[in-house]
Amino acid sequence: MATDWLADDQLNEDQDAIRDAVSDLAQKYGNDYWNEVGREGRYPDEWVKELSDAGWLTMLIPEEYGGGGASINESCVVLETLNRWGNNANAIHAQMYQMGAVLRHGSDEQKQKWLPQIADGLRLQSFGVTEPDAGTDTTRIRTFAERQGDHYVVNGGKIFTSRFQRTDLMLLLVRTTRYEDVAKKTDGISVLLVDTREARENGQIDARPIPILGGHHTNQLTFTNLKVPVENLIGEEGEGFKVILSGMNSERISAASEYIGSGLYFIDRAVQYSKEREVFGRLIGSNQGIQFPIAQAYTQLKAASVMRWQAAKLFAEGSRDGFYANTCKLLSADAQWAAGNAAMDTFGGMGLTEEFGIARKFQGARGALIAPISRNLILAGIAQRDLGMPRSY
Score class of each variant (00 low, 15 high):
Ala70Gly: 07
Pro211Gly: 03
Met1Glu: 08
Gly281Lys: 12
Gln384Gly: 04
Leu283Trp: 04
Tyr29His: 08
Asn88Trp: 02
Arg84Gly: 05
Ser257Glu: 01
Phe292Tyr: 12
Tyr43Ser: 04
Glu13Trp: 00
Ala339Val: 11
Gln95His: 12
Glu109Ser: 03
Val194Met: 09
Arg104Leu: 12
Met170Lys: 09
Asn287Met: 10
Arg375Ala: 07
Ala333Ser: 15
Thr3Leu: 12
Gly38Leu: 09
Glu317Val: 08
Val243Thr: 14
Leu51Gln: 02
Val129Leu: 15
Thr353Ser: 15
Gln117Asn: 11
Leu192Ile: 03
Asp120Phe: 06
Ser254Val: 09
Gly263Val: 05
Met344Ser: 07
Asp32Leu: 10
Glu355Thr: 15
Gly149Ala: 07
Leu379Glu: 14
Glu63Phe: 01
Ala26Ser: 14
Ala17Tyr: 01
Leu377Tyr: 04
Thr224Met: 00
Asp334His: 13
Gly340Cys: 06
Glu236Cys: 04
Val154Pro: 05
Ala325Gln: 09
Ile253Ala: 06
Ser250Trp: 06
Trp114Asp: 12
Ser262Cys: 08
Gly157Trp: 08
Val243Tyr: 10
Trp309Glu: 09
Ala91Cys: 09
Trp85Leu: 06
Leu379Tyr: 06
Phe127His: 06
Asn341Gly: 06
Asn12Ala: 04
Trp85Ile: 01
Phe347Leu: 04
Phe362Cys: 03
Gln204Met: 03
Glu237Pro: 10
Leu369Cys: 02
Leu387His: 07
Ala7Ile: 05
Ala134Asp: 11
Trp5Leu: 04
Thr224Ile: 00
Val271Glu: 13
Ala303Ser: 02
Lys227Ala: 14
Asn12Lys: 03
Ser250Arg: 12
Ala383Ser: 14
Gly281Phe: 12
Leu11Ser: 03
His217Ser: 06
Gln384Leu: 03
Tyr65Phe: 15
Ser246Lys: 14
Gly247Leu: 15
Gly238Gln: 04
Arg84Glu: 07
Met170Ser: 14
Ala134Gln: 10
Glu13His: 03
Gly214Ile: 05
Asp9Ser: 14
Gly285His: 07
Cys76Leu: 10
Asp168Thr: 10
Arg166Gln: 15
Ile373Cys: 09
Ile141Gly: 11
Leu173Trp: 11
Pro44Asn: 13
Ile260Thr: 05
Asp334Gly: 10
Arg147Met: 02
Thr3Ser: 09
Tyr65Met: 07
Leu6Gly: 04
Thr224Gly: 00
Ala183Gly: 10
Pro211Ile: 08
Phe356Ala: 13
Ile61Phe: 14
Ala183Asp: 15
Met59Cys: 13
Ala312Cys: 11
Asp120Leu: 05
Ile189Asn: 04
Leu115His: 11
Ala199Leu: 00
Gly349Trp: 02
Leu379Cys: 05
Asn287Trp: 08
Arg360Glu: 10
Asn31Leu: 14
Gly55Glu: 00
Gly351Trp: 06
Leu387Ser: 00
Gly69Phe: 13
Thr224Leu: 00
Thr353Asn: 07
